[in-house]
Every structure is written in structure tokens, then in C-alpha cells.
């Protein structure tokens, strides 16, 4: 494992911890899109179908368990926890996320590396992850006061994607036959979706002002 990959995984882990900290400690999910969280839960559930069949490493299995467990518990918290539920910006979080599922699934049926159940589901998870942040970005645009934890959460998620691209570039030059167009293109699309957010995140940081996205 190279440094970019490890840093990417750690940023991803940090993003989840920041979100859990906000939800569990402050008992608030204000500014967090349940739609995006539900999509992430579906992403991990369809990607990690191999968790009990193919052993890669202890690290790999543990991280998979963490991402599965955290994504489903976040959804549970927002939907079912008495206090957290109250802080959910339901009226603002209106993105029709179910409409993303079918196109991603059809695309996975059409464009994949191998036409098997596991491989199609894995490809579906890549396509879905690429667009899963959209409801969250729309909600951020509508949020007047983006709190620090929410801003940091989205920043860490974007950083994780950026680091994965560096990891792919590194692997391309160091490993033979390392060419994977499907994850690369969907990963690139996913990272580009954060570009606008990053711009305003750094602007607010540079000017020491509260983060706000133009509507």
C-alpha cells in the first residue's frame, strides 16, 4: 500500500468519525443530507459483497466493516434517533436520490469488466459513489449557516477522493498492468464534483470567514 492510498483511507475514516462525532455527541445532523447517507450505505453494501468470500487482508476486512457499520448506523441515527431526527433539515434535503439508482445500475449492466453478479454490483457501487454526494452538495448550497463539522466532513470526503487519484497515478507507474478505466473515470467524475466546494472552502479558510456556498 502506498502513502496516497493510506492517506486517502485515513481521510475517509476521519470524515466518517467527524460525522459520527457530530451526530453522536452533539445529537445533531443539521446540514447533513440523509439522501447522501442512504446512497453511501447502498454503495458499501453493493461493493463489499466479497467481504466474507475473498480475504485480502485484515486491514481490508476491518475497513470494510467500519464503512458498512458506520454508514448504516448514520442512516439509522438520522431516521430513528429521537433527538438527531429533530435536527434533520428534511424540507431542504429534497434531492430525488432514488432517481440516481436506476441509471447507475443500467450503466453497470452495460459497462463493466466482467458480466457477473458480484462484478456488476461492484461497478454499480462505483457509479453510485461518484454521484452520491450530489444531495449533500445541494443541501449545503441551501444551508445559510454551515457549521464547521459539516464543512470539515465534506472537505475530508473530497480529500479522500483526491488522494485516491494520486494513489492510482502512483500505482500506474509502479505496478505492471495496472489499468482500470471504470474506477478511474467514475473516481475522476466524483472528485470533480467537489471542485466548486473546495474553492469556497479554501476561500473561507483564507479569509477566515464562515463557509457559505452561493445558491
Amino acid at each position: 500500500m502506498n502513502i496516497f492510498r493510506l492517506a486517502g483511507d485515513m481521510t475517509h475514516l476521519a470524515s466518517v468519525l467527524v460525522l459520527l462525532l457530530k451526530i453522536h455527541t452533539i445529537k445533531s445532523c443539521a446540514g447533513i443530507s440523509l439522501k447522501t447517507q442512504e446512497l453511501f450505505a447502498i454503495v458499501f453494501a453493493s461493493r463489499y459483497l466479497d467481504i466474507f468470500t475473498d480475504f485480502i487482508s485484515l486491514y481490508n476486512t476491518l475497513m470494510k466493516l467500519i464503512f458498512l457499520g458506520s454508514s448504516f448506523s448514520i442512516v439509522w441515527y438520522i431516521r430513528r434517533h429521537k433527538l438527531v431526527r429533530r435536527s434533520y433539515d428534511k424540507d431542504q434535503d429534497t434531492f430525488r436520490h432514488y432517481f440516481l439508482l436506476l441509471p447507475c445500475f443500467i450503466l453497470a449492466l452495460l459497462i463493466n469488466e466482467k458480466f457477473t453478479f458480484k462484478e456488476v454490483m461492484w461497478t454499480f457501487s462505483l457509479y453510485l459513489e461518484a454521484v452520491a454526494i450530489l444531495p449533500q452538495l445541494v443541501l449545503l448550497q441551501r444551508t445559510k449557516n454551515i457549521d464547521n463539522l459539516t464543512g470539515q466532513y465534506v472537505f475530508l470526503l473530497g480529500a479522500y477522493r483526491g488522494l485516491y487519484i494520486l494513489n492510482w497515478i502512483y500505482r500506474y507507474f509502479t505496478e505492471p498492468h495496472y489499468v482500470h478505466w471504470i474506477p478511474w473515470i467514475s473516481g475522476l467524475v466524483q472528485t470533480l464534483l467537489y471542485a466548486d466546494f473546495f474553492y469556497y472552502y479554501f476561500e473561507s479558510w483564507k479569509n477566515n470567514k464562515k463557509l457559505q456556498l452561493p445558491a
Binding site: 492510498r5 483511507d9 475517509h12 466479497d50 475473498d54 485480502i56 487482508s57 481490508n60 475497513m63 470494510k64 464503512f67 461492484w122 485516491y164 494513489n167 500505482r171 505496478e175 498492468h177 495496472y178 482500470h180 474506477p183
Partner: peptide, 10 residues
């Protein structure tokens, strides 16, 4: 193998 490369990522 090529396949293994891909699936060791999260």
C-alpha cells in the same frame, strides 16, 4: 493478478 489489484482498494 490484475483482478486482485483492483479489489484491494476500498
Amino acid at each position: 493478478s490484475n483482478d486482485m489489484n483492483l479489489k484491494d482498494e476500498l
